[in-house]
């Protein structure tokens, strides 16, 4: 069994300041942080040849745009709220998974509570204020794949991940399910960063370099 390197006893200053009014951290107003990690020891009864840890880190925050109109410019809150969340969530992933250099795949997600707009999820995870920082902290270069949804508290969301520097690496196409039991409330947003230290348990479906040239002619009996 692999070792689970989790959290140090030290509480990061970022967290202790998280409710400080006026600070960047305080702007996020995080209610809760949830870290979820899976280690697969057996898949189909056999140990994966390349073991991997998968994890999500999620923050439950107040939706800063509750009550605003659909033409409201979201940029200002994206700029102040998203960066500290990107840092806090990637800190958790790096600490839990044993270092940014061990992380091979990443993904992101947001779940908006029912009083918000789906666009509010995008404003927190689909701008450079979140994505660029997650990419930088996890030492990647790929575009980050994502899922977003609007849901009641407790609804699971499947978060996709792919390789952090070679997005087309098929062995690293994988998912992990994020769920917060009591979030998001209607006026909250759950923001998620996800990472994996390796490929799927028994990845064996080839890659672009090994694929035959398949076209719709295969439906007419062509071999490929």
């Amino acid at each position: 069994m692999g070792s689970l390197e989790l959290f140090s006893k030290k509480v990061k200053p970022l967290l202790t300041n998280s409710t400080t009014a006026g600070s960047a951290e305080g702007a996020a107003g995080i209610r809760k942080i949830v870290y979820y990690q899976e280690e697969i020891l057996l898949e189909n009864g056999t140990q994966p040849p390349v073991p991997a840890l998968r994890a999500t880190a999620a923050a439950v925050i107040p939706n800063p745009w509750i009550g605003t109109a659909p033409d409201k410019d979201l940029a200002e809150e994206s700029r102040t709220v998203a960066p500290p969340i990107a840092q806090i969530l990637t800190d958790r992933l790096i600490e839990g998974l044993g270092g940014a250099d061990r992380i091979e795949a990443f993904g992101k997600a947001a779940i908006v509570g029912t009083a918000g707009e789906i666009e509010h999820a995008g404003a927190l995870i689909h701008t450079p204020y979140f994505g660029n920082l997650v990419r930088e902290f996890l030492e990647g270069s790929s575009i980050i794949c994502f899922a977003d949804d609007r849901a009641e508290a407790g609804q699971p969301l499947v978060v996709p991940m792919w390789h952090k520097t070679e997005a087309a690496t098929r062995s690293h196409y994988q998912t992990i399910t994020a769920r917060i039991s009591d979030g998001p409330r209607p006026d909250e947003i759950v923001v998620v960063a996800a990472a994996s230290t390796g490929p799927r348990p028994h990845a064996r479906i080839g890659d672009r370099t090994t694929d035959p040239a398949v076209t719709s002619r295969i439906l007419e009996g062509a071999s490929a």
Binding site: M1, R31, Y35, Y36, Q37, E38, I40, L41, L42
Partner: peptide, 21 residues
């Protein structure tokens, strides 16, 4: 036979609108 080990850590920073310290 252990198929999988899952770790979950929840940190509550505020409750009832007040900081938890």
């Amino acid at each position: 036979n252990v198929r999988k080990i899952v770790t979950l850590v929840e940190e509550t920073l505020t409750e009832g609108g007040r900081p938890v310290e």
